[in-house]
Design a protein around this nucleic acid. Structure first.
Lengths: 352, 352
DNA sequence: TTGTAGGCGTTATCAT
DNA sequence: ATGATAACGCCTACAA
């Protein structure tokens, strides 16, 4: 089975660079009795080749089992057909929806994506961006607007489109596609206030280097101040986004502040954990305490009671980015909208 | 802001191939007063360059903002540093864990992954495999062992390692890394029987072209026949993996067969949907009906009651694949284990 | 419609 | 330790 490996043999005058590398265009061309460029054309612009030749070439490709080397193509054409996307995580993560939306849009056009995971770390992000630019990705998609200085510098130098997503800003590196986390949290808080709740606690995630969680917290605080409400700081908790943490946090909140009548969790994961804990404790939702989330993740509707939450365009973000990039990559001179706000929607359900 | 875009200007004699393409090795080399190959060596084998030269080169790279073109490197060295992974989906999917495990292991070694999504369609898989081989991935990772003929042919021809995962087989294309879905379902069914349940229904997914769901169904059936149990076919349902479907399915099952005392869902998603439906209907789990799942997804433990399930090594599959590939890519002559069974574990909780 | 020539930016090989 | 040169396999530009 490993015969080939043993054939490294004695050094010859200028040894072949590689043992085997499969048939190339020129091999197909020979079989078909045409030139290499014709094979290339059959692949990229078949309409420029006569049907007869096209058939000959196609048969030859099938005969030799040709698979075109896109690496060589990338080098020659400066088009890698690869888009880089950088997200904090994809496990139990809503970013997975966005990634899937993007893939589904661009794959039919021959583009691939490479994924980088930052684990919410800007240094990791920097490494990934450097690696991706080295791979000559044709576009970079990043989560959020918080980046290291070096990252910003690299990204502003590249001629490839750079999309920041899942956020809003007036000043994107290139283009931002997402929604306002600030407004989403603010509107939900206002909705809770409008529903008559007066003691509204907040469960957020870690806010360091995370514009999304910071903005959500700011939105909550803004809504309170608009309504003239003030609470002790201990109304705000920052558990990481995790079911258990949501349960623990609501338990502590209600122990410390029995007067709390609503909890706004800036992530459905926390909200779900909170509701489940209430179920375990026998606290009726929403009578004892209302619970609202943010995400409208798939589990929100399955809760008993179903979770009031904010629907965010996770999948759509990926799709819109994909379409935007396809257009821009086809026509670099195209006029582009650098700020695309896809909005969000309050989804009232029985948990409030 | 778009000044640059307007500068395409009049066509010149032999226009530059690309507007801008950033500094290259040769540019760095000039600045550092060395040759291009030395710059290359600083990047790949710094120990072969004198410390003095190395510093000069590094400074020059920083000065000009050099980012190495890995596409050209891939072509020259026949090493793309890219691994392809093909999964049915990553949205609300356990495969995301595996992808993340793989990325976390290989990224520190400079490898990237490109992801393909089949949506459980072997034709899609075939397209993706062709595209990935074209990208000259250094390894292919596929979900399951069911592939089209063309896919098998392409994969058996390639010299790159091919890993099939999330399944077990005696006859992998190259290497299989996963666990036995058959055994997992069989053991869980036996566990339920051992717990005293005698009317055990089954909720599976679609089984066409999906070796994982087929195997699970077969495992359930095997356990029943071992225990001498026979049920009408309507004890088995094949809803797609979705919360709502789980709820609907258990409702119909219990309406049609009130004697059912346990439901084994071959996916936690279905089991969770079933439990939530029971909660809504006021059917106490496990007294009225026991519910067991398969996956040990993050939500299983959060259920009220917590879900009895089968823990499968989702994340570990990715890690093991990563390590395996790193070893093999470094040393292609290395002896390899072509069948790696990572096992599973029954996790008894309060839902049964 | 088809072919020829040359280059894409790096790395392997061989030489110094 | 460093450099000159020739691939790597394809694609753009231009020619026929």
């Amino acid at each position: 089975m490993d015969e080939a490996a043993k054939m490294k043999g004695p050094v010859r005058i200028r040894m072949a660079r590689r043992s085997v590398s499969g048939p190339k265009m020129i091999d197909v061309a020979k079989v078909a009795g045409v030139s290499a460029i014709t094979v290339s054309r059959v692949l990229k612009t078949p309409e420029k080749v006569s049907p007869k030749t096209r058939e000959k070439v196609k048969r030859a490709m099938a005969d030799v089992g040709y698979i075109r080397n896109l690496v060589a193509g990338s080098l020659a054409s400066a088009c890698s057909q690869v888009i880089g996307i950088v997200v904090p995580a994809i496990t139990n993560s809503l970013f997975a929806d966005t990634v899937e939306g993007l893939i589904n849009v661009i794959r039919p056009h021959g583009y691939q994506i490479i994924i980088g995971l930052t684990r919410y770390d800007v240094e990791e992000e920097e490494d990934i961006v450097r690696a991706f630019l080295g791979q000559r990705v044709e576009a970079m998609v990043l989560t959020g607007t918080t980046h290291s200085e070096a990252t910003r510098k690299m990204l502003s130098r590249t001629s490839a489109p750079v999309i920041e997503m899942w956020a809003m800003t007036d000043d994107p590196i290139d283009t931002v596609i997402g929604f306002s986390n600030f407004e989403a949290a603010r509107q939900m808080t206002l909705y809770l206030i409008g529903s008559g709740y007066r003691r509204i606690a907040y469960l957020g995630g870690l806010t360091n280097n995370n514009d999304r969680t910071s903005q959500r917290l700011a939105g909550y605080e803004m809504a309170l101040s608009e309504a003239g409400l003030t609470f002790p700081d201990s109304y705000k908790r920052s558990p990481v986004f995790d079911f258990r943490e949501g349960g623990r946090a609501i338990r502590r909140l209600l122990e410390a502040h029995p007067e709390i009548d609503a909890v706004f969790a800036a992530s459905d994961v926390l909200a779900v954990g909170a509701i489940q804990e209430c179920t375990r404790q026998g606290w009726v939702v929403p009578d004892r305490v209302a619970v609202a989330g943010l995400d409208d993740s798939i589990i929100a509707l399955e809760m008993v009671p179903p979770l009031t939450t904010v629907r965010i365009p996770r999948y759509q973000i990926g799709e819109v980015i994909g379409n935007e990039l396809l257009h821009r990559l086809c026509d670099p001179s195209r006029e582009v909208n650098h700020i695309i706000d896809l909005g969000f929607k309050i989804i009232p359900r029985a948990s409030t």
